[in-house]
């Protein structure tokens, strides 16, 4: 088994959604929330800088500024899904090409590894110069943030397919299509799944980051920006809370969805 498989296995057993681990994990946030409530009600903190938590929680149902969270959330999620889909398809395709062809590997792997080191935020000035600060620049940015982890994990997954299986494919004289569908993709699947998980999170961070940095248009990033400019800390905190919640849902939901696809790994492993 490639090492990436072991990685998913151990990760799964440590951070399983639900159960005692979740309850223990909730302890610290609960204590922080209590401290926050106590501090804001005792007047220890200036109320416009740190509003009481209950005001943040009712905000989505409160004034006009707060109600915009719904539209912002919908716009961000939609934007993220589009960007992620483009980046994921391109990333898996690129990783597959690198893994399949020695020529592609020699030509592109060094550039890819160099580009991968660039902090994603550094792309923003270039992208806004090329695509403006509308939706296309944001989607390209989100696609890029999903592309790198998926390209990398697909490529690594293929490289870690045991030589024993590659030899079987040679002895049985696989045709190219079979090599992809019977050997490379399923063999790299555990690693690709980790790539998808990482890419979903980076795409989500990328979405909010792009919206915040590029400004214009709807979205959670723009929502945060507006809150900051209007000095509405309750709006900002609500935005941060929703942002974190979506990240959490992506993480947990993805692991649930994934399980049936990796059944062949067996329970014992």
């Amino acid at each position: 088994m490639p090492s990436s498989v072991a990685a998913t296995g151990s990760q799964d057993s440590h951070i399983r959604p639900g159960g005692p681990a979740l309850r223990r994990g909730l302890l610290v946030p609960a204590l922080l929330l209590l401290a926050w409530m106590a501090a804001s009600h005792n007047g220890l903190l200036h109320s416009s800088l740190l509003v009481p938590p209950e005001r943040v929680l009712i905000l989505p149902f409160g004034d006009e500024a707060g109600q915009q969270i719904w539209a912002a959330l919908a716009a961000s999620v939609a934007r993220m899904l589009v960007g992620f889909a483009i980046g994921a398809i391109a990333g898996i395709g690129f990783g597959l090409a690198l893994g399949m062809s020695l020529t592609a590997q020699r030509a592109f792997a060094p550039s890819f590894n160099a580009l991968r080191q660039i902090t994603l935020f550094a792309w923003i000035p270039l992208l806004t110069a090329w695509f403006g600060n509308g939706d296309s620049a944001k989607i390209v940015y989100i696609a890029l943030s999903a592309f790198f982890p998926l390209a990398f994990n697909t490529y690594e997954g293929i490289r870690n397919i045991p030589l024993a299986y590659v030899e079987v494919a040679r002895v049985l004289r696989f045709v190219p299509r079979q090599r992809v569908t019977r050997l490379l993709l399923p063999g790299a699947l555990p690693s690709i799944c980790i790539g998808v998980q990482v890419a979903l999170i980076t795409a989500w961070i990328g979405t909010v980051g792009a919206e915040y940095a590029m400004g214009a248009g709807r979205g959670l990033g723009a929502f945060l920006l507006a809150g900051r400019e209007q000095f509405r800390m309750d709006v900002v905190l609500l935005g941060v809370f929703i942002l974190a919640l979506v990240g959490y849902v992506i993480n947990v939901g993805f692991r649930r969805i994934l399980k049936p696809f990796l059944l062949w790994q067996g329970e014992a492993k």
Partner: peptide, 8 residues
């Protein structure tokens, strides 16, 4: 080692 593909 049997080398059966574990995913098939």
């Amino acid at each position: 080692d049997h080398r059966l593909f574990p995913w098939l």
